[in-house]
Design a binder for these strands. Structure first.
Lengths: 346, 346
DNA sequence: ACTAGCACTCTACTATATAGAGTGCCAAGG
DNA sequence: CCTTGGCACTCTATATAGTAGAGTGCTAGT
């Protein structure tokens, strides 16, 4: 299918057709277009142009006597060069900020709120990936005695993210032993990538073993279990109930597939990852590259940042038939507000 | 509707009818029952008995020329006194244990696994409430300096549960100042219920303010934000995708309501709470007490324990038409295994 | 290049008929 | 009194046919 140059007029008709289809949800015929296009053309002429658009794969007819509906390729052209993002309501930004920034909220809670805000604002499903820095540098390791044979290990990474874990030990350790071990690990690995610590620790210990007393060695052996070997990837999803409003996906089967896809998070994460490296609002159509995942759906995303670095993606998922002009600004603004809020919190 | 005494024979027929309906999913007629009941009665006689059962509200006919289906009251009688829990597969217990107890899993992860196990084993939706002790006693408070104006606060409650939070401060604090403040709070509130700390702290400070230096007072004022005023209630749900298999809930609307109910967690939690105080496997039917929530669904739960104390509920949610004889043992065993596993881990 | 006209196709809706399943009731028999 | 065969009745599900309406593609004329 050669991408023949499209006349200005044909593109205009495509825009009107898709806008109308998005509003009404029903195939659009030549008569309707003749009235609404503002071009003063007869339905017959419109039909000729529609035939061209159909030949190029931008629109399709469900059956002989229905109007035309956009194909995925048609939507692609629409969102890439035809849609005009609507000016957001003046108080939109303030509303989002209010919902997002709640006193004493942890970053985790904020992400969950973002997802809720997106879904309630757009009546679609909201999605946010957990932040994941390119570099996850270790800052500090501390041990705290909980009881006879349990100690709490605390790891601080990046600027101020904290992970902790309870460790079982064979015997009790004194406060000074714990402090010593913490200091050793902090000193040895501060600034290192946390996912490399584990392998380095193994090698290091061969050498250092002689300089350390047995208590230290035991402790550090236990601590080995602390360091994760792969970053945890996940996303938060909310507003799934909205899927039932999508009259487009009236098939039970299609809905089912959608839910299966969200359960098996891997594939979705893969798609979201791609959006991580693009700047600004991205739109992905399910089935565009021939994949059946998310078929009939579209995904509107924007990356968000912490300290200037892109760490995650947020957005919405809905049917292909979405009011893009309204949704795009919402996603855009939300991403910016989240970035700003995380800057402030962390 | 007076609960007239039911003949042995009528109850037998009720059991056969419901079993058959659960298997086949279609209304059961008198002819079928005559063949399958093993009673050597003619369809006409069966019809008389069925008329009695219908009059008592235990079964109903969708329309004149269909067979009978159980009502919620019928199911109630069935699960309370007719169903015989099937002997679980011999390796079931071992399989669940293997899925549940993974090396290095935190309690939180284990709950999430429980929910997954339940849903995949029963093809229903699995549900687990977060554990909530009757008493949440404070054990220890520690402060750790992260940077100039951020400190990490760590609170240990009950035996070995840990909560932490990052606090913003106006100025930097020395290690000894932090230790002193931690010790003070630990000493003052160790053994107290964590949800009372906040209010006590306010009063206490009026008195103690004179004995403490200004650094301490500042710190403890900040720490006030640490203590939650209400326990967090929540549940984990998995296998929602299975809802689409429930041919019974073929209505889009009904499914939609279900998802709305899960989003608005409050009502579901309220129901689960009731199951907390009953021992053993409980079965709840949506719509039984006239509430429309979970209508057409049933909930099979069992409480689970930590250190002998009931702290949460787990179970499955599905359509009213469920293979109770198979599902009940699964829920029962899972609850016992989770209790055992938490005993060991914590 | 545009348009009016027309035959054609396909859907959605309505009406109608029919087979089958299951019931309730009655009268007869143990 | 409990049980049973017989029978008329009701309701559903399915198939068939007919109709109105919408929209198209094509052709011929401007």
């Amino acid at each position: 299918m050669v991408q023949k140059a499209l006349s200005e007029r044909a593109l205009h008709l495509l825009r009107v057709l898709i806008s109308r289809y998005i509003d009404e949800g029903e195939p659009v015929g030549s008569k309707t277009l003749a009235q609404e296009s503002g071009l003063n053309l007869s339905p017959a002429t419109i039909r000729n142009i529609l035939a061209d658009l159909e030949e190029m794969g931008l629109i399709a007819a469900p059956h002989t006597s229905a109007g035309r509906v956009p194909t995925v390729q048609g939507y692609r052209v629409f969102v890439d060069s035809l849609v005009v993002a609507q000016r957001p309501a003046p108080n939109l930004m303030e509303n989002i900020r209010r919902d997002l920034v709640v006193e004493g909220a942890t970053p985790q809670e904020m992400l969950s709120r973002v997802s809720d805000v997106l879904s309630s604002l757009t009546q679609l499903a909201g999605i946010v990936t957990l932040p994941r820095r390119a570099t996850t540098t270790l800052r500090q390791v501390e041990f705290l005695s909980l009881s006879e044979n349990r100690i709490l290990a605390i790891i601080v990474v990046n600027e101020h993210e904290v992970q902790n874990k309870i460790l079982q030990t064979k015997r009790a350790y004194s406060a000074s032993e714990l402090e010593q071990a913490g200091n050793y690990l902090t000193q040895a690995f501060c600034g290192k990538d946390i996912y490399e610590v584990r392998s380095v620790l193994l090698r290091e210990m061969q050498v250092a073993r002689e300089h350390l007393n047995s208590a230290m060695i035991e402790l550090i052996d236990v601590a080995d279990a602390l360091f994760p070997s792969t970053p945890k990837e996940d996303f938060l999803l909310s507003g799934q109930a909205n899927f039932f409003q999508f009259s487009d996906l009236s098939d039970m089967d299609q809905l089912r597939n959608l839910f299966e896809a969200f359960k098996e998070k891997r594939d979705i994460l893969h798609i979201l990852d791609q959006c991580l490296y693009m700047s600004g609002v991205q739109i992905f159509f399910g089935g565009e590259q021939g994949d059946h995942l998310l078929k009939g759906c579209s995904l509107i995303t924007s990356p968000y940042r912490v300290e200037g670095e892109v760490v995650g993606v947020l957005g919405v998922i809905g049917p292909t038939r979405i009011a893009y002009d309204k949704v795009i600004p919402v996603v855009d603004i939300t991403a910016k507000l989240l970035s700003a809020a995380l800057e402030f919190k962390k």
